[in-house]
Amino acid sequence: MYFIRRLIFAIPLLLVISALAFWLVHIAPGGPFDRERAPASPEIERNLEAKYHLNEPIWKQYLRYLDGLVHGDFGPSLKYRNHTVNDIIAQGLPVSMTLGSLAFCFALGIGLPLGFFTAARRGRWEDYTGSFLATLAVCVPGFVLAPFLIVVFAIKLKWLPVALWESPAQAILPMIALGAYSAGKVARLFREGMLNAMQSEFITAARAKGLGENRLLFKHAVRIAVLPVVSYSGPMLADLLTGSFIIENIFQIPGIGVFLINGALNRDYTVVVGLALLYAVLLIALNLVVDFAYTWLDPRVKYE
């Protein structure tokens, strides 16, 4: 019941987001057809505006957009005039989602063991080393890490390709570059969670009952400690799945992240609003999944 209600609330939320995005991108100075070379006559500009209905009042344009949206049509791109926004999403999203999923697995695959390990060895040198690595991963931005990885693994060692998106080997470096931040974040969250859980009363009780330390960690603490990671992983997955401008640009990956940023720079109205909506839908959906996972993991949590 609770989840159905959440789903229903999502609809007005998306409407507000689309209206806001639509309005914001339209009031920005400059338009999609402003170029360095002005057209030879004012009529050329008028023809362009008429073709894409930019000469109508903005509310009318928005209603027209909503009408398209109801029919599953995100409209034509104003920059890539042979393509619709649907084309752009259909071509770019699978690529970004693939890379994002890989990065998500990488983040959990590295972050969870590292967090667990550092928590279990708290205060020893293993903890300091691991925590340092996790902090480093969080601090180093993608535009530094990615070129570093390329120089070391692609140019010096020649183990992996420098860029492009054709073979699985080409996914490895961007996956690491994209997932490193999240991996560090997951490790830190999980370590914190573990330490907190280990101090909670039910663990003390279990310990008093004579449970072994390993069993305490694996069977009891983990379930509680993983909760902050779970709530973080919803937005994290949404973020990773929708692509990263920097990583896609550096590795020449044909994903959707480049389009969102360039769409805004190019005043490609339909692309910006379409991708903002896509991002919002993903975020809402994944947050729902997170809440659902909570009820499953933590018996103390119940939604009414």
Binding site: P39, A40, S41, E43, I44, N47, L48, K51, Y52
Partner: peptide, 9 residues
């Protein structure tokens, strides 16, 4: 005009 070419000029 319906083609709306930038470079019609």
């Amino acid at each position: 005009p319906a083609t709306a070419s930038d470079y019609a000029g």
